[in-house]
Design a protein around this nucleic acid. Structure first.
Length: 490
RNA sequence: GGCGCGUUCGUCUAAUGGUUAGGACACCAGGCUUUCAAUCUGGUAAUACGGGUUCGAUUCCCGUACGCGCUACCA
């Protein structure tokens, strides 16, 4: 039988890193076994819906590279894949459940329930529905409903005994029936709650394995019981450990960037995000941890997932991002960096190039920078000197260690002299290095006292790639102009 | 409060009833280097606590502590 998993977010906000990890594990679990992954939108709480959230969620999942086999956009034979469009289905099955005795109508008013709950709280009792309507005669309940009285449908749970459920990661978990209350399955507006919709949909959509957050563990027995009331075989369940922030708390927007969209805008690659999420609670059998989606699919195994919560700490994410940047070809990186360059130039118009730089020029720059880049968003700042004609900087920057300005000036003058002699056709990294090294040797000059000021004169930066590489890209005219400018400053 | 889940270097994690408790990131030191990266070499650093079981426990059991989750007509 083909494995079918699903990711079913609620479109009440942006996809965050925890959601991405859940999606990824569902995805990997299916894809590592040639299964299918389904995307389903759980929008049964109309009050909490956020405009555009569904669209954004779908597009960011797509950006991440997670391609679903069935879902709201691509359709499929088990649709619709949006719960709010499945009301008739839930209606039908709630009637069936009522008939089977697995549920009952409850006419209690919200006011009564509030009072009940607050009374229980003050008496330090666990807040629980008192099952007032559980034993209403069916004829009476049906009559009241027919009269238009508002009601909800509650699950009729066993009063005693224990409920044994199996989580694929933790093994058997035992709950006491007495701890569970008859929670709402169908709200008074006719919409199902999560508990009902998830069971009906997972069954109807042929889901064979559910990966979801650990926060669902407490309601897990209810779901199993519901499957049983319908006479359905439940799928396998994996409750993934939660992801915590650095201080051990819940991941939240206020703590910084948790939305995948933010990571995208800050220059992270989807490969790195996916790889990082995979490593949160899962580990490969081999020592190689740097894996893109295709590689993850190859080595992923459900049994390698751990059960303890993971703290989200982004230094490793930066490392992975750098690794994936280094893996990319220059041409592709240029395309990826372009929006970030543009953003930088928009913010610093004085540093923007006069005319749009050509692709070849950008590729050369990328080749120099890719080893140094941790995030694509750094590209503008790191490479600004490539696009300006005039550099402004403090002349002190040109000074190497304790050298005197006069001797630095003399060194730059020599370098200027040597470089001037290079033919424009020979102006390349190798030739420049040759010429300067030769000059240093004959004049018995140290490298630091010459190359440092040379590099600063070309870049106006404390840290950058080497001067030969930069000069080669800048060209003879601009390079010499910058050295001349530096000499004037001293 | 009740119920549930969890606890190995700072972080992500591996391993085993007997190991010098392994790897990765970060950090530190060194090599390469004009700088910064990349890269290479090395280093610091962990089994929450208390009881059992056992010849032996980090591993199995119990308890405690701590953390997290749930306790809605939210998901």
């Amino acid at each position: 039988m083909i494995k079918r998993t699903r990711f079913s977010p609620s479109p009440t906000g942006y996809l965050h890193i925890g959601g991405l990890r859940t999606a990824l594990f569902a995805y990997l679990s299916a894809k590592s076994q040639n299964g299918r992954v389904i995307l389903r939108l759980e929008d049964t709480d109309q009050k909490r819906l956020v405009a555009d959230a569904a669209e954004k969620m779908i597009s960011i999942l797509d950006w991440c590279g997670l391609k679903f086999d069935e879902g709201p956009v691509q359709g499929g034979e088990y649709g619709p894949y949006v719960q709010s469009q499945r009301r008739e289905i839930y209606d039908r099955y709630s009637k069936e459940l009522l008939a089977k005795g697995g549920a009952y109508r409850c006419f209690c008013s919200p006011e009564r329930l509030d009072k009940l709950r607050s009374g229980q709280m003050t008496r330090r009792e666990p807040p629980r529905y008192d099952r007032a309507c559980r034993d209403l005669p069916e004829a009476e309940a049906a009559q009241r409903a027919a009269n238009g009285e508002r009601f909800v449908i509650r699950q009729k749970l066993p009063l005693t005994g224990e409920i044994r459920v199996r989580d694929e990661l933790r093994g058997e978990i035992i709950f006491s029936a007495a701890e569970l209350d008859d929670h709402v399955l169908i709200k008074s507006n006719g919409m199902p709650t999560y508990h009902f919709a998830v069971v009906v949909d997972d069954h109807l959509m042929g889901i064979s394995e559910v990966a979801r957050g650990e926060e669902w563990l407490p309601s897990f027995p209810r779901h199993i019981l519901l499957f049983q009331s319908f006479g359905w075989t439940p799928p396998k369940f994996l409750h993934l450990p939660l992801i915590l922030n650095k201080s051990g708390g819940k991941l939240s927007k206020r703590q910084g960037d948790v939305s995948v969209e933010d990571f995208k805008n800050n220059g992270y690659l989807p490969e790195a995000l996916l790889n990082f999420c995979a490593l949160l609670g899962w580990h490969p059998r081999t020592d190689n941890e740097i894996l893109d989606l295709a590689e993850l699919i190859k080595v992923f195994q459900v049994k390698d997932i751990g059960v303890s919560p993971a703290v989200f700490e982004d230094s490793k994410l930066d490392y992975l991002n750098g690794s994936f940047i280094r893996r990319k070809a220059a041409a592709e990186l240029v395309g990826l960096c372009l929006p970030f360059w543009q953003k930088f130039w928009d913010k610093h118009p004085e540093k923007a190039p006069a005319k749009a730089p050509d692709k070849i020029y950008l590729e050369k720059i990328i080749l120099l920078e890719k080893d140094r880049l941790k995030k694509l968003s750094e590209i503008g700042e790191r490479t600004d000197f490539f696009f300006q004609t005039e550099l402004s900087y403090d002349p002190k920057m040109l000074i190497w260690k304790n050298f005197l300005p006069a001797s630095i000036k003399a060194n730059l003058q020599k370098i200027f002299h040597w470089l001037s002699a290079v033919n424009e056709d020979d102006w390349n990294e190798k030739k420049l290095e040759e010429v300067v090294s030769e000059g240093l040797k004959t004049d018995k000059l140290g490298t630091g006292e010459c190359l440092w000021p040379l590099r600063v004169s070309l870049t106006a930066q404390q840290a950058s790639p080497g001067p030969y590489q930069i000069a080669a890209i800048l060209g003879k005219n601009l390079s010499l102009k910058r050295v001349a400018d530096a000499i004037k400053k001293l």
